[in-house]
Amino acid sequence: MDRLAPFFEQFTLSARMFYSGAFCGISPNLDEQAGYLHVLKEGRLTIAHPNARPIVVDTPSIVFLPRPHEHRLHASEEERTELICATVEFGTGMLNPLTASFPEPFVVPLDALPELAPTLELLFSESSSDYPGRQTALDRLFEYVLVLLFRSAMNAHLVDSGVLLGLSDDRLSKAIGAMHKQPEISWSLEQLAQISGMSRARFAAHFRKVVGITPFDYLTNWRLGVAQTMLRKGSSLKLIATAVGYTNATALTRVFTRRLGMSPSDWLTRSKPGTVKNQS
């Protein structure tokens, strides 16, 4: 079973490279309504956030900001800093539990990710070229880097909690996979525990400890994330409610509004390009 496949089926992943090469000075304010992926090839980089202490990265690393997060990059001329940067869209403004698993920012040294080395080598090589199709090649390579990063974070337990850690647990992953596959089912704690091969009490406690929320909170978030995707595709509330386990459109709207602070129609209006607000 591909444990990551449901996320890519529900949320569209796209990246756009916007900078590559030597860097010194201070960047413009990076405040797109998207995530960011910075790959530091060499040198020293300072990431400054409003109302937060600066983060200094002084070894080749990936810096992933999974949610819209205003920041600036600083580097001195003496540091000989070289990096490649991209914006990342992966369910921005939606309840995507995969990106919610990551801290803000997520910094990991490149030498801790040996499985990414061949792809990063391609990324570095393409960024220093002037071949036709360079922008498209770099965009697709950044997307692949992100897929590999998700895979490594799950397999190597690079995050402390969240669904990625849950998916790395052989027992919990069975229940999470069942919820992903059939959000329309009225899952009971007993059913989910049985799928995981655990007692009800042990399953509930273990799920909360590993994933960080209760099984039913996770199920609700997943259902609403699926509902958001269907809303963007133009599905009716009646059809969406049935698909994600609610008896009718009114029940779905009530849960949606309680969780996100606005009705489905209001969310859809605000989620159009240029108006997306982060809700993860």
Rank of each mutant, 00 (worst) to 15 (best):
G166E: 05
L224I: 10
E184W: 15
T214S: 12
N221A: 12
S199V: 07
G177E: 01
A205T: 14
R151A: 13
G225I: 08
V159Y: 03
T214G: 05
L219C: 00
R208Y: 07
A153H: 04
E184V: 05
I185A: 11
S173M: 05
S168P: 01
A227W: 09
S152Q: 06
I195R: 01
A153K: 05
I176C: 08
E184K: 14
Y218T: 03
A227C: 06
Q228N: 02
D169R: 04
F150E: 07
N155W: 14
K174T: 12
H180K: 06
Q191H: 07
A153R: 00
D217S: 11
H206D: 02
S173A: 09
G166Y: 03
H206C: 05
I185N: 06
M230V: 01
N155S: 13
L189N: 08
K233D: 07
L172R: 05
L172K: 01
E184P: 01
E184F: 11
I195F: 07
M154P: 00
V210L: 08
S186Q: 15
G177S: 10
G166Q: 05
T220F: 02
A153L: 02
M154L: 10
S168M: 11
L219K: 06
L164V: 05
K181M: 12
S196H: 04
E190W: 07
L158C: 05
R202S: 12
N221K: 10
E190N: 12
A201T: 12
D170S: 13
T214M: 04
V211K: 03
P215Q: 09
A205W: 13
A178V: 08
R200H: 11
A204V: 06
V159G: 03
F216P: 05
L219D: 04
V211C: 01
K181L: 12
L219W: 04
H180Y: 09
L231D: 03
A204C: 11
L231S: 07
V210G: 00
V163D: 01
R232A: 14
L164F: 00
H157N: 13
D170P: 05
N221L: 14
A201R: 14
K181S: 15
L158Y: 08
K233Q: 12
I176Y: 07
A204S: 14
K174L: 14
F216D: 05
K233G: 04
I176V: 10
Q182Y: 15
R200E: 15
R232L: 13
K181A: 15
Q194V: 15
K174A: 10
Q194Y: 08
D169W: 00
Y218W: 10
R208A: 13
R202P: 02
M154F: 03
G177R: 13
A227T: 07
P215T: 08
F150W: 11
R208M: 14
S199I: 08
N221E: 15
F216K: 11
W222L: 00
S196Q: 07
S186K: 13
I213P: 00
G162C: 09
F216Y: 12
A175P: 00
A153E: 10
L164W: 02
M198C: 11
G197R: 00
G166N: 04
K181I: 11
F216R: 12
